[in-house]
Simulated scan of single mutants.
Amino acid sequence: MRAIWKGSVSFGLVNVPVKVYAATESHDVSFRQVHAKDGGRIRYQRICSLDGEEVPYADIAKGYETEDGEMVILTDEDMAQLPSTSSREIAVEKFVPSDQIDPMLFEKSYYLEPEKSGAKPYALLRQALLDADRMAVVTVALRQRTTVAVLRVRSTDNGDVIVLQTMMWPDEVRTPDFSVETGEVKDAEVKMAHMLVETLAGDFEPSEFEDDYAEAVEALVTAKVEGGEVKKTAATTKTSGEVVDLLAALQRSVAAAKEARGEAPAEEAEEAEEAEEEEAPAKRATAKQSTAQKAPAKKAPAKKAPAKKAAARKTAKKAPAKKKAS
């Protein structure tokens, strides 16, 4: 794992230098929106709702919509004036009983690893939280915004670790706008409910639960791939086709230019070059001098220049690249 934040936990006069790591990662299955006919990806454009024109990123600003539908544009200068902080401190405000924190307030979880110099105070804080069965309510600045969070201890395969869990603000938790009318509940019904709970009672083992949906999707996709049910998208076909066509066009242009100069075809020229490379240096030098008229222009530019110009005029449409090179 890679640390995403470095700072220190401070409570009283004690500071514990720590590194922060993301404790969770999502394995959610994601799909692409495609054209069912050919598998082409669906692209979205940034279209202005007023003039119907596409808006480049450089012209996109932040806007705050008021309750009456008015739009307030906020510039970079406006955003810079907002209160923010870059503090590297996790400040403990108070220690509260663990059962007083509503799990609905929890948002994201992070592991805290102590720096070498903070190993002992880290261990002391961890033990104090365990013994008191309390959580530490803290304030911390993550992504330039102060948020409230808690510190608690979590048991892992590598031992007990202090976890930082950011929390939502109280006004971000919605209150249900409905009530549940149960009517009269009989004692016999309550007793049966208790029996059902006892029948299904047990300890929570996360390993007992699997994401069967993700596994099913993966198996389905694998089966379709093995069965040849794969759409060759236009983008993929076009790209590979362009490469092949470009390569073929270059080969034809080279062959046409050499033929116009009275030289051997490309394959014969390559075989000649390989044969020359296998000979001794002295013999290869002699061979180059004796075959100066057959060698490419780069081997004898002075003698071949007139011929190249004449050939270029005859094959201007076939090999424009060669004409430019001369």
Rank of each mutant, 00 (worst) to 15 (best):
A285F: 00
A297T: 08
L105S: 01
T315R: 07
S240W: 01
R88K: 09
A61C: 08
W5E: 02
E271I: 04
D203R: 10
I4M: 04
L74H: 13
F209A: 12
A295C: 12
E89Y: 08
C48A: 01
T199Y: 08
V148C: 15
R88W: 09
R43M: 10
E226S: 04
Q33K: 01
A214N: 06
S10T: 13
A300I: 10
L124A: 00
V243P: 00
L151I: 03
A201F: 01
S155I: 11
A132W: 06
G228L: 09
A235T: 12
Q127M: 05
E242I: 06
V197C: 04
V197Y: 00
Q45H: 09
G159F: 05
S26P: 10
E279I: 01
Y110Q: 14
L246D: 12
E273W: 12
D212I: 03
Y213F: 06
K288H: 14
E210G: 02
E263N: 05
S86K: 13
V244P: 05
G227W: 12
K298P: 12
A266F: 07
E77R: 07
L82R: 07
E270P: 14
G183T: 03
A36K: 12
D211Q: 04
R154F: 08
P206C: 03
R88G: 09
M104P: 01
A280G: 03
K62G: 09
I101R: 02
A132S: 10
N158I: 15
K120D: 01
K224Y: 04
S86T: 12
D211L: 05
E210H: 01
K304A: 13
K62V: 14
H35V: 10
A300P: 09
A61M: 09
D171Y: 10
K323Y: 04
A234K: 14
Y21W: 06
E198F: 11
M104A: 07
M104G: 02
G7F: 08
A23F: 13
E89M: 14
A219L: 02
A119Q: 11
K303P: 00
E205P: 05
F95K: 05
A302H: 06
